[in-house]
Structure formats: C-alpha cells, structure tokens
Design a protein around this nucleic acid. Structure first.
Length: 462
RNA sequence: GGCCCCAUCAUCUAAUGGUUAGGAUUCAUGGUUUUCAUCCAUGCCAUAGGAGUUCAAAUCUCCUUGGGGUCACCA
C-alpha cells in the first residue's frame, strides 16, 4: 500500500508551496488507494504547535484535502526518539560530543579561513578520556566518511553525492536531549510506514543525512520524489513577502479551492493539453514520476483565469451559499437565478461577485458624471419616458427575454438604435456605465422597481 | 565558495532521435453586445551559447553561461 505524508513545520499557517506538496502527496495516495497522513514537525517546543495544526487543518478543510488517521505530533514522541538514541549509543553507532558551541564556531571559522569545507572534525568520535565538567554533551551519529550516497529519486533520477563532500558526524540530539530534524524525520517516516515521500527539492541535500539514520537503524528506505520549488516572479523561492502565501488568504481574495488546486497541480505537471482538472480527474491521472525537473514560476494570471472559469461553471445554489461567506446573502431573493446568471459570467473572483450584487440590488445613490454626459444627451429623457409607458402597458414582464422584447418593441416604434435606450437606461438603473445586460437587470429588479428608478433618474437629471 | 539540482514563447507546459516546435495564460487586433466583462476568431512570441555523436538533435554526450537549492545544537 502506498503511504504518503505531509509533514509541515508549524510556522503558523499553510502556505501555497506546502499546499502543493500536500496536494501531490494526497493525489498519489488516493490514486493508489493508499493513505495520506499528516505529521506536525514541532520538535522546536517554543512554538505553539496546536494553533499551527489547527490552521493547517482549517486550510485542508477549505480545499477539501483529507488526511487519514490522527495527526502525529513530533513533540509527543520524545520517548520514541530517546529509545533510538539510546540504541545507537549502545551499539556504538552514535556518541557523545563535549564540544562547546564556542569551540564549534571557532572550528568553523578556522576552516573557512583555510577555505576548507566546514565540518565537525570528529574529535569525540573515539573519545575515551574524562569528559569536561559542566557541559551537557550533544549526541552525534557516526556517518560514513567515504563512498557514494546514491538517491534513486522518482523525479530527479539518480543523484550521487560523495560522502566526503557532504557528510560529517551530525548532531541527532541537542545538549538538552531533544532530537534534531534529520533524525526524527527518518524515524517517523519509517515508523509510520511512509513508503513514498513527496516533498520539496530543497530537501534533496538533506536526504543523505536521513539515509544515514535509516541505515544505522536498519529501516527500509522509502521512495523519494523531490518536487521542484515554486518560484516568485523574480525567480526566487516563494517567501512570505511575495504577497499572500497563506492559503486562507486566497479564500479572502475570492478564489475557489478547485481553481487553486487546479492551478497548483498544473505547476510542473501536465496531461497533454488538458488545462481543467476536477479532483476526480487529478486523482485518476496524477503520477509524481512525470513531474518536471525544473522549478516553475508562480503566475497569477492563469490562476485568475481558472478561477473565473470555475465561477462561471458553478451552480447558482453553490454561488449563493458561497456568497454568504463574503458578506452577501441572496439566498432569499426570488430573482437570484437571474441575478447570478448575469453576474457569474463577469466575475474573476468571489469578492468581485459579492461587490456586484449590491451594485444592482441597491438603487444608485448618485449618477456618474461622465456616464450621464455620454448617455443623457439629445432626447434620452423622452425615450426613457416612452419606455416607462411601454413597461406600464405590458402585463407579462418576468423573464429577461420579456424585458428584451419590450426594448425591441420600443426601438422599432421610435425608429432608434438600441444604444439610444440602452445607455440612458443603464445610467438610470445602475448609475453608471458597465455591468450586466439591461434585460437581466430589469428582470432582477422587476417592473415596479425598474419604473421607479427610471422616473427618479429622469427627475434628478432634469 | 564546496556540493547538488535545473534550462522550450513573458508565464504554465507538449513534442517514441525525423512535427511548418503544439496547447493554455498574458498581450494585440477583429467579431458579438445597449456598456463593461464573457464568448468566438485571428495574430505576436521559444528550443541559453558552443562543440561532439548521428543521414537526422529541443531530444543523447561534453564544455560554457545563467538560474535555483543546500551547507546550524532551524525545520
């Protein structure tokens, strides 16, 4: 069975890059009928892991990703790590190092001055004397100093490191006894049965260290997939400065989760010319082994386009329910179908959609000067008055097509162009140019409100 | 700087060693419309550079250049 995981460090919220690796792990697990588990990497206890976990779960919930089983907190697994530290110590695969932080810094500076690679020099590897007083030792693992470390990566292919270039006896437990990242990741992944690790390729150079731990503990290696990063417009790793990296901020900006996921899955991965993927299609088609090797740049235009697409193709019921989260309630409005039909074609995001609703439902408080100047010239008022009479004398006025017919009849009778009625009518009903078709607007407003608004405008603009 | 990774339009990407290098987004133009948007049509735009292998290279090899990642008692 394929078991994947998402293992964020709790920095407070889920960001867009994290969501992508989570999505890919999720898809691959689902495609294989496997499991997708969530683990919070909170070995640094100074941070509030619960709030972070809640934020992540909240974001997961919003986009519709579900993890299997309980959330695993590394902060609650100290005994497990302690057990393995003891085991390695007993087996002579790890040892106590009494070097102080100052000494370490000094060593590093000397090495840098000599243009050598900075590394621990192994001075306590075979130490048998009396340890210095008053110093809590760190635990270091014995790492191979020669030979090749080969990662058979599912995306990058064979990646080969020389042990002497990158390894030293790295620290697996700090002076206070707490275990370090590369140690616990390997243990947790192994213990939780994770056999397919999909993560950012910034972890590629950590992998050899983790492999040392796997080897020392006799665990079986998972399959690694190191996914290229998402970069910002200037080609750098996506950071908090690049605008809204918090997934929940995308909700606030009016993005639909399906648009966001669709956007993310297409970053570095494709299926021929297909651009639109439902969740089911993603699950059916996604395979991490055909993810691109190169980083991709995050580009909002495509996301906006996708979002517009998904809004246009959403049902009115769904949009009405969603709109409530953006402070607009149209569920009780008897013309909500006409309203949403007209508006969803033109909204790029939910926030825009939410703003368009009151612009129609509320009568204009003022009339845009430029629009008035353009639309209210010549006999515009006479045309509007004639249109009012036309509406008053028409009994069946419900559908947009009914109102359209009324307009058509008027322009035919008066022998004028559509613009002669359309433009002043637009200003009268909405106060400005722009917006949906007049027939839809009138159908939403109804006959009485339409007439009322026209009369008011004619009066106000005299 | 050491090590590792990467390189097709501005951006996301497609292309069993043989295609007029395809699609999408953006942009431009035209059409549709009472306006704006949508929608439709058309157009602009790419194999980083240099060697090599081959009848044939975006595709394989090497070098150069460029970009990125990583080098903690952070994760």
């Amino acid at each position: 069975m394929v078991v994947t995981r998402f293992a964020p460090s709790p920095t407070g919220y889920l960001h867009i890059g994290g969501l992508r690796t989570a999505l890919l792990s999720y898809l691959w697990a689902r495609r294989n009928g496997g499991k997708f588990v969530l683990r919070i990497e909170d070995t640094d206890k100074s941070r509030n892991s619960e709030a972070a976990a809640e934020a992540i779960v909240k974001a997961f919930k919003w986009v519709g990703l579900e993890h299997d089983g309980d959330i695993v907190y590394q902060s609650q697994r100290d005994e497990i790590y302690a057990k393995y530290i003891k085991q390695l110590l007993d087996e002579g695969k790890a040892y106590k190092c009494y070097m102080s932080k100052d000494e370490l810094t000094e060593l590093r500076e000397t090495q840098m001055a000599n243009k050598e690679r900075t590394r621990y020099d192994g001075r306590y590897r075979d130490f048998e004397g009396t340890p210095p007083e008053g110093l809590e030792p760190v635990i270091r693992i014995k790492a191979p100093m020669t030979g090749e470390i080969v990662i058979d990566d599912g995306i990058k292919g064979r990646v080969i490191f020389q042990a002497e270039d990158i390894l030293d006896d790295f620290i697996i437990a700090r002076g206070d006894g707490s275990p370090t990242y590369n140690f616990v990741v390997a243990i947790d992944d192994a213990l939780m049965g994770i056999n397919e690790v999909i993560r950012g390729d910034d972890h590629l150079s950590n992998t050899p260290k983790q492999m040392v731990v796997y080897e020392a503990l006799g665990f079986e290696l998972p399959k690694f997939y190191h996914v290229p990063m998402i970069h910002n417009a200037s080609g750098k790793k996506l950071s908090k400065r690049d605008g809204a990296t918090d997934v929940m901020a995308y909700k606030e900006m009016g993005y639909l989760p399906e648009a966001l996921l669709n956007f993310l899955v297409r970053l570095g991965w494709s299926n021929g010319d297909q651009e639109i993927f439902s969740m089911d299609e993603m699950i059916e088609l996604f395979d991490p082994s055909n993810i691109n090797k190169s980083a991709s740049i995050y580009n909002v235009d495509k996301l906006d386009w996708l979002n517009g697409h998904y809004i246009k193709n959403s049902s009115n019921e769904k949009l009405a329910a969603l709109l409530k989260e953006y402070g607009v309630d149209v569920e009780g409005h008897d013309k909500k179908e006409f309203l949403l039909d007209a508006l969803k074609e033109r909204a790029k995001n939910m926030k825009e959609l939410a703003e368009m609703v009151p612009a129609i439902l509320n009568a204009p408080e003022s009339y845009d000067e430029k629009a008035v100047k353009k639309a209210f010239k010549g006999d515009a008022k006479e045309v509007l008055k004639a249109f009012v009479s036309k509406l008053e004398s028409t009994t069946e006025l419900h559908l947009p097509s009914d109102f359209h017919a009324a307009m058509e009849a008027l322009v035919a009778e008066m022998e004028i162009g559509f613009g002669k009625i359309g433009m002043p009518l637009r200003v009268a009903l909405l106060g400005a140019m722009g917006g949906p078709g007049m027939d839809s607007v009138m159908a939403v407003l109804g006959k009485d409100e339409t007439i009322k608004r026209i009369n008011r405008a004619v009066e106000a603009l005299s």
